[in-house]
Design a protein around this nucleic acid. Structure first.
Length: 258
DNA sequence: ATGGTCGTCTAACGA
């Protein structure tokens, strides 16, 4: 089984890239973030044509999450009670082939100390509670998405320049560590990886060309799934295309369930 | 360089 996650920064613009990536990599499930399309506008037919079903929770202009899958996505949750009537479309939990996939677009937080930063930390605290509940129901759990947090200095091209800045601040990293303590393991770090592996590069300043990136797109695994994982990688190829997303897809492959 | 580039509700705003 192969599961992937990709912040596409507008599905309308990136649809050709997503279709090409699905055809090439044939994942069983692909979680998307920042689709920026409302549910009636979601391009269901384009995915159906290549054998993928879609479930989605969208809004206009901002946010929006979706899961594309070969098998049906069951038990969809878009509004965890722990996030109490938050209108922002950032969560989509589904079950595909017996694996619970929680697709997250974690708030960016703007700047340390801002109102949006406080919202991010509060959101992460509430998300911990939701994930604790999901884990108790679903032992095979993968939490995937754009976490907007670089877990460690090794996930940042210039840790000193980013010290205590947004995406890297200690309170954000501690909130992520509290998720890891559930326990959930960072799939990427279960394997030897190339130095300077990142999943996001700012559009400005030619950051990708110089590999000035951060690893903020993550796949977190419950112990039951950790036992089945075979590989995990970031695919930087789509970042080289014309009109790319600022994020690269991340994927993980698993052995069949015992 | 308090800059730069994208995407969206083509005008700011969010990332």
């Amino acid at each position: 089984m192969k599961i992937a996650t990709w912040n596409v920064n507008s599905l309308r613009v990136r649809l050709p890239h997503v279709l090409a990536w699905l055809e090439r990599h044939q994942p069983d499930a692909l979680a998307l973030q920042e689709t920026k399309v409302t549910d009636p506008e979601f391009p269901v037919a384009a995915f159906d044509d290549i054998g993928y079903r879609a479930v989605f929770s969208g809004q206009r202009t901002y946010n929006g999450v979706a899961v594309l899958s070969r098998s049906p996505a069951l038990d969809c949750v878009t509004d965890p009670p722990q996030l109490a009537e938050d209108p922002q479309r950032r969560v989509l939990a589904v079950t595909v082939d017996g694996v619970r996939i929680v697709n997250l677009y974690v708030p960016n937080g703007s700047e340390v100390g801002s109102e949006k930063y406080a919202y991010k930390l509060d959101w992460l605290m509430k998300m911990r509670s939701f994930l604790e509940h999901e884990l108790s129901r679903c032992p095979s759990l993968a939490v995937v998405g754009d976490f907007n947090i670089a877990p460690e200095d090794s996930d940042v091209y210039d840790p000193e320049a980013w010290r205590e800045r947004i995406l890297c601040s200690t309170p954000e990293r501690e909130a992520l560590r509290r998720l890891s303590a559930l326990p959930l393991s960072d799939a990427f770090r279960l394997f030897e990886q190339p130095e300077a592996s990142y999943s996001w590069w700012d559009y400005r300043t030619g950051a990708f060309r110089r590999n000035q990136g951060l690893r903020i797109d993550l796949i977190l695994l419950s112990d039951a799934l950790k036992e089945r994982i075979q590989s995990c990688a970031i695919d930087t190829e789509p970042r080289r295309l014309e009109r790319p997303s600022d994020h690269a897809p991340v994927w993980a492959a698993f052995a069949a369930a015992p």
